[in-house]
Design a protein around this nucleic acid. Structure first.
Lengths: 134, 134, 134, 134
DNA sequence: GTGGTCTAGACCACC
DNA sequence: GTGGTCTAGACCACG
């Protein structure tokens, strides 16, 4: 199984950050389970056409967050995370993202009904595209 | 009337960017109307305890976006923007912010009901705090 | 007769420069003849809704160019300029403007035929609008 | 390949603007192709004997116009621009420059024949000098 | 007084 | 090494 990560060098977001966010999401969503052995630095860098340094940084950052574990001679794999802890993590990520967006909406005087309407519209759109993935 | 902008040098977001976003929100929300004369570079810099250059950059960037107008010897003021154009701008800002947040939620497998619940909770919170502003 | 000058505060070009260019064109084109008495500083400033300082600067600049003359207690009027000298001045202004434009065209690799075509198109447009002025 | 840009500190035009215009022309004319890696800030500043900041401003402005792309740690290069879009951009630049010049000519009562004659003379001159460049 | 340009130099983030 | 942010301070152009 190849890890489904896609990076764009056109984006303003730094490379390492794009990879980190996507990898974190894969772990929090349960797509990569506890103990899963990730590709080696060199291999992953080749996959994503980026530098080894960039991959090393991603692994190190996620290890500091407690989501990955590295062992000399073995490689890097998904850490065991308590399921409540993982759930809390997931909830916080969603909550924070929505909070930022809704606070912006309030700053530009967007009424609650309009926010709800936009949210509903976006959910419908994403629900529909779930049946027909890439 | 003093312009209500608050910056934090703890944030990872660059200073100039914090100021720019808040100023843009004040214009898009209609708090600062067409023709309003903003504080001079030097004055505003003193207010916010930052460098003149930082303010200059904010004014210049927003001028390129078409929201401000600067004239030598006169000052910097809010440009005349068509109200439909402004409305579009406002809608797009909210839509984009929510889209980003909701896409993240889907990536971590957050179900639609949970998204709606969090949105509702955040709206209630902000509605309540509207009655009792700082 | 009111002097037909129109300024726009939206333009990037400085106020004094807009006025100066238009006044110079009126003299070079013969619309304002030798000896014509211009409005006083105060009067002209009121007409154009600008500062007296701005008008003074315009008169001073054009006096230095030899197109205007000021006399204490009398006012400012159009200087007597030899007709050949005026003709040379006029030719030079047109030549310089066209040269700058055409050099730009060459820098972006625009072929001569295209330049001729655009020039012709612009001339037709301006000829047509001469019959029906504002 | 060294980038052929020449600046004059005698000119009234700001340094950064001179550089920007010339660089823009090199891109629009196709001399610098999509993906071309420009000199680094520091290197280019040394070449042109100006401040790093001045170069940064040029790169940043052209990036906002969509002609360049900068990425931290990588460098600044020519963006991919649709060829039609580039063509439109090129046409507009030439058209606007000629329009300004010809409107000036009309303001000083220059007859169409004289405009055509001057244009023709300038084209001949530039065509001739194309055989024998610097 | 205002904004516009340019300088030198520092420190950080990214690859 | 690269670009990104921020600083302090100078000088000019405009009204």
């Amino acid at each position: 199984m190849r890890i489904p990560i896609h990076v764009s060098s056109d984006s303003a977001e730094p490379l390492y950050s794009q990879i980190k966010e996507q990898l974190r999401a894969l772990i929090l969503s349960g797509h990569l389970k506890e103990g899963y052995l990730l590709p080696s630095n060199r291999e992953f860098a080749a996959d994503l056409a980026c530098s080894v340094i960039t991959i090393r940084r991603v692994y190190q950052d996620l290890e500091k967050e407690g989501l990955l574990r590295s062992r000399q001679g073995t490689g890097t794999f998904v850490a065991k995370v308590g399921s409540e802890e993982l759930e809390q993590y997931r909830y916080k990520a969603v909550h924070d993202a929505l909070q930022e967006a809704i606070e912006l909406a309030y700053r530009v005087q967007c009424p609650p009904e309009e926010i709800r309407a936009i949210v509903e519209q976006l959910i419908q759109l994403l629900e529909k595209s779930k049946g027909e993935p890439k």
